[in-house]
Nucleic acid binder design. Structure first.
Length: 859
RNA sequence: GCGGGCGUGGCGAAACUGGUAGACGCAACGGACUUAAAAUCCGUUUUCCUUUUGGAAGUGCCGGUUCGAGUCCGGCCGCCCGCACCA
């Protein structure tokens, strides 16, 4: 009688063995010897205290890669905690928790939840960004960047909650109001710290080209984010007097100088100096500025808002025609952070400009004639024409293509000294100041006589105080009774500490380098980093496609520039994979509240809430979230079914880059597989029984070797779902073989069992070990060398080809693998199913694709 | 609004560089075993027409290229993600 596989006992046993044998400890560059290195990294988690299925999927994927690489490579597969951030402050405010204690507790709880997953992690390298031994080094890095002019201060806008007197994060702004106070937010100017990421804009753009193991879509998103655009800066002379009484011209950047003759207005950002100046004399403008500020600072909110503007009451002269005066407006869709914070509106060629012109009844003159359109009849109604074409209605530009007209217009502007060719970038410098407690303190001091002074390196770290006061809104560091009072490192006089802390994106911009030697006395051990970096495979959510990855790429370059890192490519992640989310069905009860999926069942063909018996409704498949009550707790699943089942499930079915839908049925399917895999291995014979060279035994061997090849490829190409499908096939074939007494079958089954144990082990590592032990494998399967497919068993002497007549499949022929095209054609024509479709028609052409298909064209 | 992506059976999906559409799993249905159930095992399952043999249609929609299109091109529709202070 076959025994049932018991994950509860088995999994614990193997984790203890791995632990005892220290199999996942990475060797340093000096210990490693000849083995090549493989650095496998998953984006480290924020320690919410609760492991969720998204983590399980992310780390299961990384673990497949790391365990597969363990064969032949010195693998670094570390784990740490991205432990600064807003949630700890929210907990402090909402339930009076101490951020440090709360965070440490969460880490401990989450680590406990990680343990049963059986991940091949090197915990000896664990790091946590909120601890001094991490952030002290980050402060040292900050000082180096400062020395190298990669840090500076300037004023910029924040979301200000006027009731709480505090700065709000974008996510704390809901419909233009503070999430706690409900008060309309204001945008307020504050002096803040910036990293000069734009110094590397060209290099960050160029570098994308070399990242051939990154998803194309991420590279495109980054390129668009950096946003290099070529065009012209155009100088518009002010006609008469500007609102401030002194400005003589307004500079405007455009990518479309070819449409200059279609200009019908200039639009300035709500916070452009001239807009502010106009507000002094015009209450309408003042009102407009106030309304625009209430949108908050997010680009999304600004661009989604209905287009509004106000006439600023003065005009500028058209650069090509001094007699042509154009009104100047302020408009809420103009971003002060891009270009010069001013645009010229050419409504026929830009949808936003057109919407604006229609709303305020400004002229719309078409200047670009689309190909094949007629100049006499072409008009613009409510849809702008943004494509290429021929310029008309445009004086000296008439008849030129849009591309030529851009050049000609720039040339003329330069001759008139009213403009120059220019390149602008969408990328702005990275604002890193946060007016918050739970972050890395910025090592700077403000002295009345010396100004802003860096804290000397030997006085680091600047520690966070242990006793923040969250009883009032605002930054606890700023109102701490003693913390900020210090002496100036330069003059020794009274001074105040900087009370801003660093954006948590800074913490995650260099942790991958710290992992190379997390105990290093310097921020980064350059020797170890040179050995391990770049990360060979980085895995995480696509939501980080732009910011985190771009900041990390910036950091690698900045650290190089400061001499803290030696990574010539500047690229920290050679391979990147972005995985999809874990989703689950959502349900609501009769009163419209979200209810958990397990509170719902089918009764007489209708969905009801179990506790009340009242009808329930389905609300689609959504990302697992607490608010929608569709979260499945991995700890519970692992408790019931074991980690291998959870891992197997999240890797099955859906391709890794796509979302996977959690379902109870799917979990049970995974459970069945784990049981089946164990049972087919357990049932395999103890002894070989001769060579498996023919019949069913040979077929099983062929399958085994095909599966080796496909699973190996599946892992290397991140197609875990197809690898999983192959393992199902192998297990199914082994079950079938149990009733066969073909000669050599015992040998073939033993080979299949050994192979299954090995191939399954990156996915379901505990099961892999148990199977490996059962068939008497040497040592641990975790360290066994990966099987290699025998090429002789991957090919066969004959091949089955479909035969089409006029593109429709009519029959199938079996021909020798190396048959000539003529022979194949003859066989195909002779096939009765094919021949019946050739009666009464003339064959015009026969296409033979060797090894693929035959298509007979006849009429 | 801007940028990016995705769309194939009842469901998740597979299909190498254009070459037999639907591997594998889930669900459903039928059967075996069982006193019964659970578990397990075997089989059927894109749709429509046909008693069968077989035929037709079919990869979001419309059109194009090709001997041949899920795959390439153009236009649309729908859904999802990011937008700089969430991480």
């Amino acid at each position: 009688m076959a025994s049932r596989y018991n994950p509860r006992e088995t999994e614990k046993k193997w984790r203890a063995r791995w632990q005892d044998a220290q199999v996942f400890r990475a060797k340093s560059s000096t210990e490693a010897g000849d083995a090549p290195k493989a650095y496998v990294l998953e984006m480290f988690p924020y320690p919410s205290g609760r492991l969720h299925m998204g983590h399980v999927r992310n780390y299961a994927m990384g673990d497949v890669v790391a365990r597969y690489r363990a064969n032949g490579y010195n693998v670094l597969h570390p784990m740490g905690w991205d432990s600064f951030g807003l949630p700890a402050e929210n907990a402090a405010i909402e339930r009076n928790a101490d951020p440090r204690g709360w965070t440490r507790q969460n880490i401990a709880a989450m680590k406990d939840q990680f343990e049963p997953l059986g991940l091949s992690l090197d915990w000896s390298r664990e790091l946590s960004t909120c601890e001094e031994d991490y952030y002290a080094h980050q402060q040292a890095i900050f000082l180096k960047l400062w020395e190298n002019d990669l840090v500076y201060r300037k004023t910029s806008k924040v979301n200000w909650d006027p009731v709480e007197n505090t700065v709000l994060a974008n996510e704390q702004v809901v419909d233009g109001k503070g999430w706690r106070s409900g008060a309309p937010v204001e945008s307020r100017e504050l002096e803040q710290w910036f990293f000069r990421i734009t110094r590397f804009n060209e290099d960050l753009l160029q570098g994308l080209e070399g990242l051939d193991r990154w998803p194309e879509k991420v590279r495109i998103m980054q390129a668009n984010w950096i946003g290099k655009s070529r065009g012209a800066t155009i100088r518009w002379p002010v006609a008469g007097k500007a609102p401030d009484g002194k400005t003589t011209h307004i500079d405007v950047f455009t990518t479309r100088p070819d449409t200059l003759y279609g200009a019908s207005f200039l639009a300035l950002a709500p916070d452009h100096p001239l807009t502010k100046a106009a507000a002094a004399a015009n209450p309408d403008v003042a009102k407009f500025i106030k309304e625009a500020a209430a949108l908050g600072t997010s680009e999304e909110a600004i661009e989604k808002a209905p287009k509004l503007g106000v006439d600023l009451g003065f005009t500028v002269k058209h650069p090509f025609d001094p007699d042509w005066e154009i009104p100047v407006w302020a408009a809420n869709f103009v971003l002060s952070s891009y270009g010069s914070g001013a645009v010229f509106g050419s409504p026929a060629g830009d949808q936003r400009d057109l919407d604006f012109a229609r709303k305020y009844d400004l002229p719309v003159k078409p200047v670009v004639l689309p190909p094949k359109a007629d100049a006499a009849t072409h008009t613009i109604e409510n849809e702008a024409y943004v494509g290429p074409g021929t310029i008309y209605n445009s004086d000296f530009l008439d008849g030129l293509s849009t591309a030529d007209a851009i050049e000609a217009a720039i040339k003329r502007l330069e001759d008139l000294e009213l403009g120059t060719a220019a390149t602008t970038w969408r990328l702005r410098d990275w604002g890193v100041s946060r007016q918050r407690y739970w972050g890395c303190p910025i090592p700077a001091v403000r002295c009345k006589s010396c100004g802003v002074v860096p804290v000397p390196e030997d006085q680091l770290p600047v520690r966070l105080p242990d006793d923040p006061d969250f009883s009032a809104p605002g930054n606890p560091l700023a109102r701490h009774p003693t913390w900020k009072h210090t002496t100036c490192p330069k003059c020794g006089g009274e001074a105040e500490r900087e009370t801003d802390t660093l954006d948590t994106f800074v913490d995650s911009s260099w942790y991958f380098a710290r992992f190379c030697d997390p105990k290093s006395k310097t921020p980064i051990n350059k020797t170890e980093a040179a050995y391990w970096l770049p990360v060979d495979q980085y895995i995480g959510g696509v939501e980080h496609a732009v910011l985190h990855l771009l900041y990390s790429r910036f950091f690698a370059r900045a650290l190089n520039a400061c001499g803290l890192l030696d990574l010539p490519s500047g690229e920290p992640f050679a391979g990147l994979f972005t995985q999809g989310m874990v989703t689950h069905e959502t349900f609501k009860n009769a009163s419209g509240q979200w209810i958990q999926p397990d509170e719902v069942e089918m009764r007489d063909g209708a969905l009801v809430e179990i506790s009340t018996g009242k009808p329930a409704t389905v609300h689609g498949v959504e990302k697992m979230s607490k608010s929608k009550k569709n979260v499945v707790d991995p700890v519970a699943i692992i408790g019931d079914y074991g980690a291998d089942v959870a891992r197997w499930f999240v890797l099955s079915d859906s391709p890794p880059e796509r979302d996977v839908q959690w379902s109870q049925e799917g979990v049970e399917g995974a459970w069945r597989f784990i049981q089946k895999a164990w049972s087919v291995v357990e049932a395999s014979p103890e002894q070989d029984d001769g060579e498996a060279t023919e019949g069913d035994a040979l077929e099983l061997r062929r399958l085994t070797h095909r599966v080796i090849k496909q699973v190996t490829q599946g892992i290397e190409q991140f197609r875990f779902n197809t690898a999983v499908a192959q393992l199902y096939e192998l297990a199914n074939a082994m079950r079938k073989a149990e009733s066969s007494s073909a000669p050599g079958m015992g040998t073939a089954r033993r080979e299949a069992a050994r192979t299954l144990a090995q191939l399954v082990s990156p996915f379901a590592p505990h099961l892999g070990e148990e199977c490996w032990a059962k068939i008497g494998g040497d040592g641990l399967v975790a360290t066994a060398s990966w099987p290699v497919a025998n090429p002789d068993l991957l090919t066969s002497n004959s091949v089955t080809l479909p035969v089409q007549v006029n593109g429709k499949r009519r029959g199938e022929i079996v021909v020798p693998k190396d048959a000539s095209n003529d022979a194949v054609e003859q066989t195909a024509r002779a096939n009765p199913d094919v021949a019946s479709h050739l009666e009464g028609v003339t064959v015009r052409k026969v296409i033979v694709v060797p090894g693929r298909i035959v298509n007979i064209v006849a009429s």
